[in-house]
């Protein structure tokens, strides 16, 4: 059994909450539920070495689970359509303010598998354009940033677009 202290949960919860709010996202205001998910992220970090989505069955192989590392590739689409990510860790502003309720939502992952883009159109741009698969942030530079400045996803979550 993996033990996680309340202090560790509190620390990560506060960090995620601040990062979310700084970038226009919201954590679920049901703090007990949300801290449960934050604890699960820490459990998965110890189990797999990365923040596999707590509500999906991770393979334990990072390359296969890249799309479901929190925040997952499906979060923003689910926020738009349902007002919550698959776990309901992240919610829309209306849900965060109690104007709308969240429920368990359908799994987007297998219904619409997102292919990693490997072929990009030839261009004569001076720099390649990289896209964050989590939030859509774009930047033109030799390599993607180490961490997405918007959603804090790591470099490996970027794909080359142009």
């Amino acid at each position: 059994m993996i033990e996680i202290s309340d202090g560790e949960v509190e620390k990560l919860y506060n960090k995620l909450k601040k990062e979310a709010e700084d970038a226009g996202y919201f954590l679920n205001s049901d703090t007990e539920f949300t801290k449960g998910l934050v604890k699960s992220l820490l459990i998965n970090e110890k189990r797999y070495g990365y923040w596999a989505c707590p509500c999906r069955l991770a393979s334990g192989v990072k390359e296969k689970d890249l799309d479901i590392i929190c925040p997952c590739d499906y979060r923003d689409a689910d926020l738009n359509e349902y007002g919550a990510c698959y776990c309901a860790l992240y919610v829309s502003e209306d849900v965060a303010n109690g104007k709308k309720q969240v429920t368990s939502i359908p799994e987007r992952r297998r219904a619409n598998p997102l292919e990693r883009q490997n072929n990009f159109p030839m261009s004569n741009l001076k720099y390649p354009v990289w896209r964050c698969r989590v939030c859509g942030y774009l930047c033109a530079r030799d390599q993607p940033p180490m961490v997405c400045p918007i959603c804090k996803a790591k470099q490996e979550r970027f794909e080359r677009m142009i």
């Binding site: 539920f33 449960g36 998910l37 699960s40 459990i43 998965n44 707590p54 509500c55 999906r56 069955l57 776990c87 309901a88 860790l89 368990s104």
Partner: peptide, 10 residues
């Protein structure tokens, strides 16, 4: 269920 999932706990 999954041991880490919030909806499973609910």
């Amino acid at each position: 269920a999954l041991s880490t999932c919030g909806w499973c706990k609910k």
